[in-house]
Amino acid sequence: MPPEAPELARREKGGGLLAVFDSPHDAARAIASLRQRGCDDVRAAMPAPYPEVERALGRSPSRIGWITFAGGLAGACFGYLFTSWTSVDWPLNIGGRPLVSLVPYTVIGFECMILFGALTNLTAVLIGAFWSRWRRGLPDRAEFAGNRIGVFVPAAQAGDAPCEALCREAGAVEVSHVA
């Protein structure tokens, strides 16, 4: 079971070990070694989503897809229901066609599905990003947006010397303890 947010915040206050890498390969190697050693809560900051780093971190898949699906479904329902309701609310005979014509309303239902799905997806991405930012303990350094990768092990998990040695072995250009 993942630790509760206040517990994570408490741990972060204690700082941790920060290793800086030039290459995603090295960072991935270090993360794999650290996780083998039992450090489950390793975190990383990187200028692009490098697949090997993400694989090494072993995060579970995001649930954004389900949230987007729910948003899209709600949009499609809204599209059909809204058009049907307005047709009944102001009944207008158009060429003798049925008052509630589901076939032409499919266009509106489809567009609403995409619109609601996209906006739900946007909201989920932003909430997910804010949430992960709040719980991480990585120092905010410009180089992690530039050409370096930061790997962070919270103090509660970092066994100091062994972790440091593992990172250096993997090719870290800088290893430091951050408050």
Partner: peptide, 22 residues
């Protein structure tokens, strides 16, 4: 306030995929 953390990339990557799919 984007900070390039792995959690942010995880949300971003998945969300971007669904944006493309929509």
């Amino acid at each position: 306030g984007w900070r390039n953390s792995d959690g942010e990339w995880r949300s971003f990557g998945r969300g971007y995929l669904f944006f493309a799919a929509l």
